[in-house]
Simulated assay, not measured.
Amino acid sequence: MLHRENRIKKYHTSSAADLIKETMDYYDITQTDLAKRLGVSQKNISDILKRKRFINEVLALRIEKVMGISSELLLSLDSHYKLHMAKQNNEIDKNKHKTNLFLQRYDWVNA
């Protein structure tokens, strides 16, 4: 029921790693097998799945061809994930109105 006091739940922020892992589980494919199909090292796949490394445009296209996952979706997920993490770790955002970095309009300026 819609009610003014109901709170909207925050969405889980996913990365391309989550979708790749889910697809790997569905097809019961190993990191080694996926790495061979994509032409990259198993370490590269491992780092992506652990979010130590993110996919680039070339790898996104390879994944699209091999796994059938949209390259645009993969890049978008990673981009949103990295931005979310940057916001969480950024001290400037926490104090943006308390710093002289935040843009201010001065009274003496006429537009």
Rank of each mutant, 00 (worst) to 15 (best):
residue 42 Q to G: 00
residue 89 N to Y: 09
residue 10 K to H: 12
residue 17 A to Q: 06
residue 62 R to E: 08
residue 109 V to F: 15
residue 103 L to G: 13
residue 84 H to Q: 15
residue 85 M to D: 14
residue 84 H to K: 15
residue 105 R to Y: 09
residue 30 T to I: 03
residue 41 S to D: 10
residue 67 M to E: 14
residue 111 A to C: 12
residue 25 D to N: 14
residue 10 K to G: 09
residue 6 N to E: 04
residue 24 M to Q: 09
residue 9 K to I: 07
residue 31 Q to D: 00
residue 18 D to P: 04
residue 87 K to N: 02
residue 37 R to A: 04
residue 81 Y to D: 01
residue 27 Y to F: 14
residue 47 D to N: 09
residue 87 K to V: 07
residue 40 V to H: 05
residue 19 L to W: 00
residue 109 V to E: 06
residue 64 E to V: 01
residue 37 R to T: 00
residue 61 L to C: 13
residue 89 N to W: 00
residue 58 V to W: 02
residue 97 H to T: 07
residue 13 T to D: 15
residue 68 G to F: 11
residue 62 R to Y: 09
residue 94 K to P: 12
residue 110 N to T: 07
residue 47 D to Y: 08
residue 24 M to L: 12
residue 4 R to K: 03
residue 99 T to S: 12
residue 96 K to A: 04
residue 39 G to M: 02
residue 109 V to P: 05
residue 7 R to Y: 02
residue 69 I to G: 01
residue 42 Q to V: 05
residue 35 A to E: 11
residue 3 H to P: 02
residue 75 L to E: 08
residue 95 N to R: 09
residue 55 I to W: 03
residue 27 Y to E: 08
residue 22 E to P: 01
residue 58 V to T: 04
residue 76 S to G: 14
residue 70 S to K: 11
residue 77 L to Y: 04
residue 21 K to I: 06
residue 59 L to R: 02
residue 19 L to F: 08
residue 71 S to A: 14
residue 38 L to M: 07
residue 7 R to A: 04
residue 52 K to R: 14
residue 48 I to L: 12
residue 86 A to Q: 15
residue 109 V to K: 13
residue 67 M to R: 13
residue 8 I to K: 07
residue 93 D to N: 10
residue 66 V to A: 07
residue 103 L to D: 15
residue 69 I to R: 01
residue 59 L to F: 05
residue 84 H to Y: 14
residue 42 Q to R: 08
residue 109 V to G: 03
residue 24 M to C: 06
residue 80 H to S: 13
residue 8 I to Q: 08
residue 76 S to T: 07
residue 110 N to C: 07
residue 47 D to V: 00
residue 109 V to H: 11
residue 25 D to R: 13
residue 64 E to C: 02
residue 83 L to S: 09
residue 81 Y to T: 00
residue 100 N to K: 11
residue 41 S to V: 02
